[in-house]
Every structure is written in C-alpha cells, then in structure tokens.
Design a binder for these strands. Sequence first.
DNA 1: GACCAGGCACATC
DNA 2: GATGTGCATGGT
Length: 225
Amino acid sequence: MKRNQQNPLPPLDKVYDELFAAFGPQHWWPGRTRFEVMVGAILTQNTAWTNVELAIRRLRREHVLQPRKLHAVDTATLAEWIRPSGYFRLKAERLKSLTTALIRDFDGQLSRCFRLSDQALRAWLLDVKGIGPETADSIMLYAAGRTQFVVDAYTRRVLERHDWISSGATYDEIASLFMENLPRDVSLFNEYHALIVHLGKHFCRPCPRCESCPLRHRLPIRCRT
DNA sequence: GACCAGGCACATC
DNA sequence: GATGTGCATGGT
C-alpha cells in the first residue's frame, strides 16, 4: 500500500493501550438486539448519537424493532417516528430498503443473514441502498461480531493530523492499516473504534484542548486554529 | 446564530 | 476518478 505519510506508523496496539489507559472502556453499542444495532447504524449516519437515542426509544415504544414489524410500518409514519435523528425521510427509506432485503433474502431472519461468511455478509450489506462502507462495517463489528475495523470521519482525522496517512487514503486502505497490524479480536476492534471517536471528538478538533491530547507525547495533533 | 454530528447516493465535470 | 450537493434534527 502506498502511504506517503510524513510520520511512520506507530505500533497500533500501543496506541490502543494509551487510548484505553487515558479514556477507559467506552461501552459502545451494547444495543439490546442485533437488529437494534443495525437500525442504529443507519440512524447515526452523520448524526449525533444523542439524537439517534431519541429515535430508537420511539421505535422501542412502538414495538417495531424487528425486521418484519418495522417493514410493516408505513414509510411516512416511520419517518415521523425517527424524526429526531435527522434526515428522517431519507433514513426511513434506508431502513425500509434494509428490511426489504432481509425479507427477500433471509425470510426476515437475522440468524440466517448472519450465517453468511465475512466477505459475503459485507458484500450483501453494501448492496443495500443506503448502507455504505462505514454502516456496513459497523453492522459487521457491532451486530454480527466480525473482526471488521470501522473507519469513520474521526479515524481519518486523527490519522491525518498525526500524518500517519496521506490525505488521499481510501476507506479500505485505512481499514486495512488496522486489520493488518492488530490481532483479529472483535472486542479489541470494538473498543478501538470507540476510543478513536472519543479522541477525535474531544481532542482532535480545532479547539484549545488539542494541547491535552493523550497522544501528544508521541506525535502532536496539529490544530487548525 | 453558526457549527457540528458515529454517511450515503447521485449529478456533474 | 474526483468533487460538489442534498438530506435535517438537536446540542453546544
């Protein structure tokens, strides 16, 4: 892989240790069911999780957090129920395209869907309209328990600020960076992604707190301000 | 009132 | 292949 970055990539397991020591466990996505995690993965697209929680709470209250039950809800009604999560019309369509595919290919049974191999499951997810690489990988990792590293905007930002990747690095290149340099461990991937998000959210943004990034003694995160 | 958030599909060049 | 745009709410 072409990396072209300015700084050498540090041992990623050590970076994890530092982040875990600094922030502790993040308790990401314990999600009550696998389907709930899948729904959350779509609802959180470019959206703060606090907003997603409001929508999920409503779907729980309506008792529709099962593929067939969700599919039976009229799209306009569904959109109203998930309104707090933003892009609600778009996301209602995306949830419907997921349930449509689940019913078409697996009789609406997640147990059958998750019987697919890693490669086949990822391809199947990516084939659903409204599910892109990050959403697919979030579902792979957090719902299906596969060792698929999730790359998001924070991951890219943190790596770019440290000059560990070039600005043109693709999603799959970044994912491979982690997957080829870490033991294949679901709970490690799970926690690692959450820790990177925490780091990116609180320390790797244009604000004075950048100075206190826990990785600063290794390589400073460049602040835009 | 501006800015941001756990992206994606589609149009255009 | 790269870049731009629409989608929308709630918190800071």
